[in-house]
Amino acid sequence: MINFDLAALRTLVAIADQETFARAGETVHRTQAAVSQQMRRLEDQLGLALFERSGRTKELTPSGRKLVDYARRMLALQEETLAALHAVTTGGPVRLGSPADIADTVLPEMLRRFARANPALSLVIHVGRSPDLMELLKKGAIDLTISTRFDESRRHFLLRTSPVVWIAANDFRVDPNRPLPLVLADEPSIFRKIALAALERSGRTWHERYTAPGLAGIRAAVAAGLGITARSIEALTPELRVVGEADGLPPLGNIRYYLYQRDDAVSEAAKNLFRLMAARG
């Protein structure tokens, strides 16, 4: 009888999502060597090849892809079980802050199972920019927040590591002979900092064509073809596409999203939500 290692399954899902062992390692907080070792043990346990080499990279085999589907379901059941065990019937609302890109894409699925197990709990979501959310947390205006800012003085964990990419309209073409038109957030913005630092290192000329305070304005300007922007991969929408090194643009690396709890004075409901979301890591 095979007893699946949930940590190994979580790593397998991370590889499927991140497409490389190295990026998956950042997501699950393991070295690339440790990820490879985990996958070898899983293959030995199953007696199946989960990966096959394709050029310099490894791709999932049909058996590997099938296991990823089951792994997602097993991990989802684990989260649902934790949510049910920590269910609360009173308390709240839990006030949760989130950047717009995470609130649009990652957060709904995170909260769905917790809300189903806690039907009496109310949630208030504050969508904003990371520095503003950290200030709200400091003031006690919210109980938990997701943020790109790192603050070791507060209870936290690494929620997600995401690639930062150049994003443009589907019909936008980068002209290598002209300064790069940029659509950027105003200060303070970690994505603005990442973009300008990468362009400075590469020697690529640029000009700031449009400045917006939030993601909605940035998306609108990029979709209108005014320029390109640097955001996490979660900011992509159907009318936008990723441009990159093939277009003469420098790589941008990854960004980390942390979840913070204000302090121990928050409600039990907020503590339970924090624990549940931490269990995904």
Score class of each variant (00 low, 15 high):
254 N>C: 12
157 F>P: 07
149 R>F: 06
140 G>H: 06
206 W>M: 13
129 R>D: 09
138 K>T: 15
85 L>A: 05
35 V>W: 00
44 D>E: 09
18 Q>F: 05
209 R>W: 12
233 I>E: 12
220 A>V: 04
91 G>K: 13
121 L>N: 08
140 G>N: 03
133 L>P: 08
188 P>C: 02
281 G>W: 01
84 A>I: 05
117 A>E: 07
55 G>H: 08
228 I>T: 03
260 Y>S: 06
132 D>S: 14
78 Q>D: 03
211 T>G: 14
265 A>L: 06
272 N>R: 03
176 P>T: 00
212 A>G: 14
161 T>C: 09
209 R>V: 15
24 A>C: 04
183 V>E: 01
231 R>H: 11
256 R>T: 14
186 D>V: 00
32 Q>F: 03
208 E>V: 15
77 L>I: 06
15 I>P: 02
223 A>W: 01
90 T>H: 15
251 P>D: 12
6 L>I: 14
212 A>W: 12
62 P>I: 12
276 L>I: 10
161 T>H: 06
21 F>Q: 14
123 L>T: 00
163 P>F: 00
281 G>V: 00
117 A>F: 04
67 L>Q: 05
26 E>L: 13
68 V>L: 11
83 A>H: 03
129 R>Y: 03
57 T>Q: 13
55 G>D: 05
129 R>C: 04
223 A>Y: 00
67 L>G: 01
223 A>I: 01
13 V>E: 12
132 D>Y: 11
239 E>G: 09
180 L>Q: 05
72 R>E: 07
155 R>H: 08
275 R>D: 07
218 I>S: 05
138 K>P: 01
106 V>M: 11
142 I>E: 05
38 Q>Y: 00
139 K>L: 15
